[in-house]
Simulated scan of single mutants.
Amino acid sequence: MSELTPATSTQYLSFFFAGEEYALGILKVKEIIEYTSVTRIPGAPGWVRGVFNLRGSVVPVVDLAVKLDTPPSTLTRWSCIVVVEVKLDGERIVLGLLADSIGQVIELGPADVVPPPSFGTKVHLDYLLGMGRMEAGRKFVLLLDIDKVLSTQEVLAAHSQQPPEAPAS
């Protein structure tokens, strides 16, 4: 009798913005940091909230709410930045995603991920890996494909934003 190998499950980090719960594959998430000051960049796309210093690197912060055509995120004491890596022409780029709050780490097996409905979601379907069934199927979380949410040109535009230099004295 052959031994059955269990289907591999995947862990996701859930977070909230625009009143909805979304999740990213945990391997895309590098860290979660408290939202502090972000430097606005004149001329940056509206969905780029600004940039911040992460151990000497300038990291753009993307407001996914704006990017996905909902009102901008309102900062609260639970606001945070989810630092992620996205693929850009085979290269990995670090970005911060503004989240209203963090949910939990969830584990989903292949049977727990279903295709999103072709209607009724605010998010463009190409941006989703699917919907994760939670709590015995009573609740769903939208699984974002962060590599598709931002196009190559958008990632380049966001990543090339630098804060203005201080005038020489």
Rank of each mutant, 00 (worst) to 15 (best):
Ile106Tyr: 11
Pro115Trp: 00
Lys122Val: 03
Gly109Ser: 05
Trp78Cys: 10
Leu68Val: 05
Leu143Val: 03
Val155Asp: 01
Ala23Lys: 00
Gly25Trp: 00
Asp89Pro: 05
Lys67Asn: 05
Arg77Glu: 10
Phe17Ile: 14
Val62Ala: 06
Asp69Lys: 14
Gly19Ile: 13
Pro116Asp: 02
Ala136Gln: 12
Leu143Gly: 00
Ile33Arg: 14
Gln161Ser: 13
Pro45Ala: 08
Glu3Arg: 07
Phe52Glu: 04
Asn53His: 02
Asp126His: 07
Leu64Tyr: 09
Thr39Ala: 14
Met134Cys: 11
Lys28Glu: 15
Ala18Arg: 04
Val155Thr: 12
Ala168Arg: 05
Ser57Val: 03
Val29Lys: 10
Ile146Ala: 04
Gly96Leu: 06
Glu165Gly: 13
Pro110Thr: 00
Leu24Asp: 01
Val155Phe: 02
Gly109Pro: 01
Ala44Lys: 04
Asp112Phe: 02
Lys30Cys: 07
Phe16Ser: 10
Val83Asp: 04
Leu108Trp: 00
Asp69Met: 11
Asp147Val: 00
Leu75Pro: 04
Ile106Asp: 01
Phe140Asn: 04
Val59Ala: 12
Ser57Asn: 13
Leu142Glu: 11
Pro72His: 14
Gly96Cys: 11
Ala7Val: 01
Gly90Arg: 07
Ser118Asp: 11
Thr152Pro: 15
Gln104Ala: 09
Leu24Pro: 01
Gly109Gln: 00
Tyr127Pro: 04
Ala99Thr: 10
Val155Cys: 06
Gln11Cys: 05
Leu156Cys: 09
Glu165Tyr: 12
Leu13Val: 10
Ser73Asn: 14
Leu27Arg: 13
Cys80Leu: 01
Val61Tyr: 13
